[in-house]
């Protein structure tokens, strides 16, 4: 189990958090103007990266804030955390 450094609360056990999948998939501003293919791309298609992944987590049993985590999915080592809306760090 990891320890996640919540940007609002500090280091906490992973069991206090929930994962929210790949980060920086922006919801299209005009969904109705997308083709079925483009909509499916947003809705379902994922990079599912083995290696450095930018992803979303929420501190469910804490501040209930969403934030971003940079994690190496091949060994679960967390490289960085940053708040929603902040520029992703270069890792």
């Amino acid at each position: 189990m990891f320890v996640i450094n919540c940007p609002y609360c500090g280091e906490r056990e992973q069991s206090e958090f929930k994962a929210g999948g790949e980060a920086h998939i922006v919801r299209p501003k005009q969904p109705t103007e997308l083709s079925d293919d483009e909509w499916a791309e947003y809705l379902f298609m994922r990079k599912n990266i083995k290696g450095i992944q930018f992803e979303r987590w929420i501190h469910t049993h804490g501040c209930r804030k969403w934030f971003n985590v940079v994690r190496d999915t091949s060994n679960d080592k967390i490289k960085a955390v940053y708040k929603m809306g902040e520029e992703p760090p270069t890792v």
């Binding site: 189990m1 992973q14 069991s15 994962a19 599912n48 992803e55 999915t73 091949s74």
Partner: peptide, 12 residues
């Protein structure tokens, strides 16, 4: 609930 290729899961 998270993506991982480590072949390890959490004890919980």
């Amino acid at each position: 609930d998270y993506v991982s290729y480590s072949q390890k899961g959490s004890h919980d």
